[in-house]
Design a protein around this nucleic acid. Structure first.
Lengths: 152, 152
DNA sequence: TTATACTCTATAAAGTGGGTCGACTTTGTC
DNA sequence: GACAAAGTCGACCCACTTTATAGAGTATAA
């Protein structure tokens, strides 16, 4: 389950992908246009800054901007930064694997084996979608519409 | 993210799929062999009973048993019963759809469009896996091994 | 001095787990 | 048969941790 933190973070990133390169956006503006509680968004953007996804500038005329062009930012990595691994369960994660305490023989844990497949399916979607693609979806670009409707 | 409730619930269901048809398993036994806190498992099995997945019998010789043969029980539905919809976000769910408050134009919400694809990918995996297949994985059946390794 | 990001503290809900007792069913035993 | 005892599920209350949010105040740049 995606937490609201990640949901808000993604919306904010899409918003930032929409401002002209080199310009900044204010937290208050991002919050207002996306219906996000401002204080919560403060914390979220702070995390995204620590994770290196965005840059911030203090004082008058300050704000946030993307650290890299949106084509180079994968949706999966944004979610990982805010919500942790994509895998539904820790022992099925490839980026932040951790053995689970209850589980004698991991290679025969049916739950883990199924969730490994689920993780792969999720990663296939999220890691192959860039922030730029999300920006185009939000803008109503028809070429991405096709991509959205694509079956597996 | 799969909660521990669903994880424990799945393990218990796999355990129940392993007992001979017509026989019951004790909560205490299921808890011990799967390293699950017994009281927590009590509550989980209670929910699974209310949802119609298992039957319970009190008194000596009592315990839990599956309500249907394991081939007829989909993993996705067990997860839904315990953790709610598979979709990472409510507005991307097909079984329990709910509009999200923050979101002016749903058809252009990039987060929702991406998460719809993620939901489909997850459902594809979980709804096409039966409890019987999980039981075989746990038993080390090689024919399911192949299924597990199958690429998308 | 003003606009802005940043920090600290606090609150309510949900997830996770434990402890205690009650209700129901079987199994004796007289 | 009747009644006691034991085994088993079931329900209630408590506590701690993580999410989600708000408020007040601090630091920094123009």
């Amino acid at each position: 389950m995606l937490t609201k933190k990640a949901k808000y973070g993604l919306k904010a990133m899409v918003h930032l992908a929409g401002v002209r390169p080199g310009e900044t956006a204010l937290v208050a503006d991002i919050a207002a246009s996306n219906q996000i509680p401002k204080k919560f968004l403060d914390a979220i953007l702070g995390e995204l800054r620590n994770a290196g996804f965005v840059h911030s500038k203090k004082g008058k005329g300050g704000g946030y901007m993307l650290a890299r062009p949106p084509e180079d930012i994968g949706v999966g990595n944004i979610v990982r930064a805010l919500d942790g691994p994509l895998a539904p369960i820790q022992c099925a994660s490839k980026t932040v694997y951790r053995r689970c305490d209850d589980c004698v023989d991991e290679t025969r844990c049916a739950v883990r084996l199924v969730m490994l497949r689920a993780r792969d399916a999720i990663a296939e979607v999220l890691d192959k979608t860039s922030l730029e693609q999300m920006r185009r979806m939000a803008a109503g670009d028809d070429s991405v519409r096709l991509l959205v409707g694509a079956a597996l």
